[in-house]
């Protein structure tokens, strides 16, 4: 199967392991493809939440709107933190592929986890600030849709963090076996996917809201 002259076929989205671990590469095909199908379904879910948000931007019912509530600075920080975590996850994937070194990999994952958790922390403090101003989701259709869109992303990142945690433990218990690797491949595309969703949140919710 592995032939050094012909390039290995890419079998699935995200990091492919063909060059360094052909067996896992093949085992991963169905698993990662299946996870990708799930992400497409999830993408539709997010798209619809965005659409609902767009239809409700002006439904402030006399309450505050986007321009009064949002601030550029925390959004920028959150954006950079999440982008950085995408990059560290990329490093983790490279370590998994080329170095196969458990401890290094764990360090990269812990870095990602810290960034992920700080992202969540910034969001919580954002929400807390809004709540203190009285801008709670019960106030208007606009705020309901804002909170639900952003916290759906929040919940996804939270599950991503729990998943990273579980994988850290599994790395210690099992080392880099085939199952752990295919799971990290899926976790990787999940993490990058969440960053993509965030691009649209900061663009459509925050930037265009403040424009």
């Amino acid at each position: 199967m592995t032939n050094s002259t012909t390039p290995l076929p890419r079998l699935y989205p995200g990091m492919n392991l063909g060059e360094t671990d052909p067996d896992t590469h093949e085992a991963a095909e169905e698993l990662v493809f299946g996870f990708w199908v799930f992400l497409m379904s999830d993408a539709v879910l997010f798209a619809l939440l965005f659409a609902v948000y767009e239809t409700m931007v002006n439904s402030t019912a006399g309450g505050p709107g986007a321009a009064q509530l949002f601030h550029l600075k925390p959004t920028l920080i959150e954006t950079l933190v999440l982008l950085a975590s995408s990059f560290t996850f990329g490093m983790a994937s490279l370590i998994m592929k080329f170095k196969q070194h458990v401890v290094l990999l764990q360090i990269a994952l812990i870095g990602t986890l810290i960034l992920g958790v700080s992202f969540l922390g910034f969001e919580i403090s954002d929400f807390a600030k809004l709540t203190r101003q009285g801008a709670v989701p019960q106030l208007s259709g606009f705020l309901s849709s804002f909170y639900v869109l952003v916290s759906t992303h929040f919940l996804h990142v939270l599950s991503g963090c729990i998943w990273i945690l579980v994988m850290l433990i599994q790395l210690s218990v099992f080392g880099l076996d085939e199952t752990v690797k295919t799971r990290l491949l899926r976790l990787g595309i999940f993490w990058h996917f969440l960053d993509i969703v965030w691009i649209f949140i900061f663009t459509f919710v925050y930037l265009l809201g403040l424009l």
């Binding site: 890419r10 989205p13 990329g90």
Partner: peptide
């Protein structure tokens, strides 16, 4: 990041 391109193989 997701390594999606227009290659034929996938």
């Amino acid at each position: 990041f997701l390594h999606i391109d227009l290659e034929k193989s996938h």
